[in-house]
Simulated scan of single mutants.
Amino acid sequence: MQSLPEIADFLKQGLKRQHLSQRVLGERAGVARRTLTGVLSGEADYKISTLLSLLDRLGYELAIVPKGAAAAMANDGSFQPTAPAVKSVVDVARERLTKRDSS
């Protein structure tokens, strides 16, 4: 999974598989209704602790693996690693130096 909408779809599928309502999942996970609605919309940003709690109550856990290893884990081979979306501190510093030097 590479996006909030993909995570939301995964969580919604988990709800269906376990025949749970959003209300029950929220109560079991200790997540407010409004927060859960935001998570399941695929548009709201949320805390990692919220995701961990929801996954736990659905019988899943979060595993972080190198991008290359994730391709091997995809059942259908569809996972393609992406370039980092967030600039590192080093990237930001390099950009600043480049701008300063070109001025």
Rank of each mutant, 00 (worst) to 15 (best):
L25E: 04
R34F: 01
D56C: 09
K16V: 10
Q13I: 10
L25K: 09
E27F: 03
K16F: 02
N75W: 01
T50N: 06
Q80A: 15
G38W: 00
A70E: 03
L54Y: 04
A70R: 08
V39L: 06
G14M: 03
L15S: 09
V86G: 06
V90P: 00
G59R: 01
S103N: 12
T35K: 06
M73G: 07
S53K: 11
S78R: 12
V31K: 12
T35A: 12
L36Q: 06
L58T: 07
D101M: 12
F10D: 08
S49F: 00
G42Q: 03
K87F: 03
K16I: 08
L58Y: 02
Q13N: 12
E43D: 09
G77C: 04
Q18K: 14
A29W: 01
L97S: 12
P84S: 09
H19E: 12
E43W: 00
P81E: 02
M73A: 14
F79C: 10
P84A: 09
A85G: 14
D45A: 14
T35P: 00
T82E: 15
S88D: 03
S41V: 03
F10G: 09
T37I: 04
P84F: 03
A83L: 12
A71N: 02
T82K: 14
L40A: 11
R33N: 12
R34S: 14
G68F: 02
A71T: 14
K47H: 12
E95W: 05
A72C: 09
G68S: 10
A63I: 03
L54P: 01
Q13A: 15
P5N: 04
D76C: 08
A44P: 00
S41T: 02
L58D: 05
R23Y: 05
A29P: 01
R23M: 07
G77P: 02
A8D: 05
E95D: 14
D76R: 15
L25I: 04
